[in-house]
Design a protein around this nucleic acid. Structure first.
Ligand SMILES: Nc1ncnc2c1ncn2[C@@H]1O[C@H](COP(=O)(O)OP(=O)(O)OP(=O)(O)O)[C@@H](O)[C@H]1O
Length: 717
DNA sequence: GGTTATGCTATTTTT
DNA sequence: TAGCATAACC
């Protein structure tokens, strides 16, 4: 069987394990994901397991799609009926069928984090609590972590004490009630309610236990308790549970992930077969040794061997720069240099600790003309206009959804004030009807003025009409009709600003996404579309655009690999982040560093800046302790000219100056260059000034301005 | 009731 | 710094 030809011996052993509990605990790049993928393929192709009997769990939707594709390429289209998804998506799929058992409707809405926090805020207000003291975010975090522990509202109330937690418990109860009346669930509910369902309806559990003959979980080190329980319940009958992971790569404890899940697997399944993988197929020996030395500073870990036959490779480069601009310029210059070494920009990734760090990088990349794409950050689906549009669609699909109703009832402005909306909500509550139904009966609500009544009724009619039309029209058409009919598009057009144009473009992109869905999904529906995008994040659409540098947080980098990796902002306070230090999470930060480093195949860089602007203030940071945890023999330490380090010479090695990456104005702009400025438009360089300035004459108004190259949003054309 | 301004605040990581 | 929420104002 040629499936097995792509595997080494221990991998083959894991892949062909006939059944029973199986654990693969192994270091980075040792082929764990490959094992999982091939095991699924093998089960289908050689063990007579039907694809429908397989449940494979991945960490992101993107990883799920990749795995599906890979399996399909190994065993053919039969693979399409497998369940390969995230925990959340799998549970959502189960609950779409089973929700009525729990009193929810099948078309429940899934609230994203912002919706959840908004709902908590509403609960706090309803209970007349001090929002300053009990911040919606804080309370939400408490509720979320309770749910991750499978602690429902009543149970939570019963077990906590102390004023804060008691208050949180009251909010939790109301919050859960509100979700229920809105026919909505939050992310954590997806898992918790699935477990609840299985506990309350054993025959439903039996059904799924029976149908999932094999359960496989990737990135098992980042599962939380509720997910653990779920796997445990589902796997009870066949006991064909295969988990794959690396305790050193557990980086989501703040989201409830519990490293004990993987460490205790053998306790839960004493008969488990345990396979170790020790050959790394990704990185050079230098990178591996560096990462390993680093992570050895953690206690409480299962030590793992890891070797490679890829050779020594280049030293890890550690570069000191003066500030974040110099840092970005260094990276940009290096990206250009790497091209010459056969590493195109598409093979380069830049990782940072916090999203805010991407800004400067983007600025400089634009100026250098380097293509890049940012993964994560302000996400497409979190933009206000997209959320508004989706809220309309959700309301069309689920008239009971009061959060969506509230979101869009006055955007665009419909002449409804606080008073009218409150009266409407009150009426809906007392009559036990939805907000939308209440809008239809606006005439009966005394507190609402005639003009407002009229627009409420019009709104209700709009939504109802759109809902009636959805069955017979493609999703894209529904969205277009909604944008036009609601006046949303007109509102943006009337604004006549750059931002509004951008928003219109975003909405067009949404229509595009829907059109793509219409084409692809046979028997597609508005509901299907909404369900698909409700669990969708930007990481999932990380398209393999060639030639663009990838910018993302280290968390997003999990599971990926790149020939060259830059880890920027390697400074105390940033990485490790000061907040993590406060919370005693140094070891998790170190694991994050380990994950980031082991994404690199051949080249690895750390940069740290003496000073940087962050949150509006200037800070001076020492180089990250993580840098010092890498043995000096594996690194090459350098400093850009003019860089002074904070603590001075704490490296074990003399510092070699690095040639300037080309920041001087002269190297970038020449008299006669055509340029474009973000605010002033197109122009031409008339003079290059000493000291990093250029004089540009702008064609728009004929003005001449002298600009500092370092700061001006100026680009060659 | 709507608009605008100012005033605040919170800024880690995300399915 | 910027993004949001509330307050003052029209
Ligand atoms: N037997 C093998 N022969 C050749 N290449 C392999 C083999 N096994 C894995 N690889 C390659 O090694 C790389 C890492 O594999 P994979 O992503 O499965 O590892 P992993 O253990 O899941 O990594 P991580 O935990 O770091 O995300 C991939 O490029 C994969 O194609």
């Amino acid at each position: 069987m040629d499936l097995l030809a792509d595997l080494n011996e221990p991998q083959r052993q894991a892949v062909t394990c006939p059944g029973g509990p199986l654990q693969v605990l192994a270091g980075a790049g040792s082929g764990k994901t490959r094992v999982l993928t091939y095991r699924v393929a093998w089960l289908i192709a050689s063990a007579g397991v039907s694809p429908q009997e397989i449940l494979a769990i991945t960490f992101t939707n993107k990883a799920a799609n990749e795995m599906k594709e890979r399996i399909e390429s190994l065993v053919g289209p039969v693979a399409r009926t497998m369940w390969v998804s995230t925990f959340h998506a799998a549970c959502a799929r189960i609950l779409r069928k089973e929700a009525p058992h729990l009193g929810y409707m099948n078309n429940f809405t899934i609230y994203d984090t912002a919706d959840q926090v908004r709902l908590v805020r509403r609960c706090l207000k309803e209970l007349d609590l001090d929002i300053k003291r009990f911040t919606p975010k804080g309370i939400h975090a408490v509720i979320s972590s309770a749910k991750n522990q499978l602690i429902g509202p009543q149970e939570f109330t019963g077990m906590v004490d102390g004023f804060y937690d008691d208050t949180a418990a009251r909010v939790y109860e109301l919050y859960q009630k509100m979700l229920f009346t809105n026919n909505a669930m939050d992310f954590d509910d997806l898992i918790m309610l699935t477990v609840t369902l299985f506990k309350a309806f054993p025959e439903r559990l039996g059904h799924y236990q029976h149908s999932f003959r094999h359960i496989l979980v990737d990135e098992y080190q980042d599962t939380n308790h509720s997910q653990y329980r779920l796997v445990n319940l589902l796997g009870r009958q066949h006991r064909n549970v295969c988990v794959v992971g690396d305790d050193d790569q557990s980086i989501y404890s703040w989201r409830g992930a519990d490293i004990r899940n993987i460490l205790d697997f053998e306790k839960d399944y004493p008969d488990a077969m345990v396979v170790k993988l020790e050959q790394n197929y990704r990185s050079t020996q230098t990178i591996l040794s560096a990462a390993n030395s680093l992570v050895c500073n953690n206690s409480d870990r299962k030590s793992k061997k890891l070797w490679t036959d890829a050779g020594e490779g280049e030293p890890v480069r550690v570069v000191a720069v003066s500030d974040e601009h110099a840092e970005a310029r260094f990276v940009a210059g290096e990206v250009n240099r790497l091209r010459g070494e056969g590493i195109p920009p598409g093979s380069v990734a830049v990782f940072y600790r916090i999203n805010a760090q991407s800004r400067v990088l983007e600025d400089i990349f634009v100026r250098y003309g380097i293509a890049y794409r940012v993964v994560g950050g302000t996400k497409f689906y979190e933009r206000a206009e997209i959320k508004d549009a989706i809220a309309y669609l959700l309301l069309i699909d689920n008239p009971a959804d009061s959060v969506s109703f509230m979101r869009v009832i006055n955007s665009p402005k419909r002449g409804l004030g606080q008073a009218a909306v409150t009266a409407l909500a009150g009426y809906a509550g007392s009559e036990g009807i939805t907000h939308l139904e209440a809008a239809a009966r606006a005439d009966r609500i005394a507190a609402i003025r005639p003009a407002a009544r009229k627009s409420l009724k019009a709104f209700q009619a709009l939504i109802t009409d759109l809902a009636a039309a959805t069955a017979s029209s493609p999703v894209a058409a529904t969205i277009e009709a909604m944008l036009a009919g609601s006046g949303y598009l007109d509102m943006l057009k009337a604004e006549r600003t750059i931002e509004a144009e951008g928003r219109i473009e975003n909405l067009q992109e949404l229509v595009g996404v829907a059109a793509e869905y219409d084409q692809r999904a046979v028997g597609g529906s508005l509901r299907g579309f909404l369900q698909e995008i409700s669990l969708y994040t930007d990481v999932d659409k990380l398209a393999v655009e060639q030639e663009a540098v990838t910018l993302m947080t280290m968390h997003n980098a999990k599971g990926l690999e790149f020939p060259a990796v830059f880890i920027i902002g390697a400074e105390e306070g940033i990485f490790p982040h000061s907040r993590s230090l406060e919370e005693q999470n140094l070891e998790e930060e170190r694991r994050l560093c380990y994950v980031a480093m082991t994404r690199a195949r051949r080249r690895l860089y750390f940069t740290h800046a003496t000073t940087r602007n962050l949150y509006g203030g200037r800070s001076y940071n020492m180089a990250s302790r993580f840098i010092e945890e890498i043995p000096a023999r594996l690194t090459r330490v350098e400093a850009e000219p003019g860089t002074r380090t904070v603590s001075g010479g704490h490296y074990g090695k003399p510092v070699t100056p690095v040639p300037d990456a080309g920041s001087a104005a002269g190297t970038f702009f020449h008299a006669g260059d055509n340029v474009v400025h973000a605010a002033f438009g197109e122009g031409v360089v008339t003079r290059v000034e000493p000291g990093g300035g250029v004089t540009v004459r702008f064609s728009r108004d004929g003005s001449e301005r002298t600009l500092m190259v370092e700061y001006a949003p100026l680009k060659k054309v």
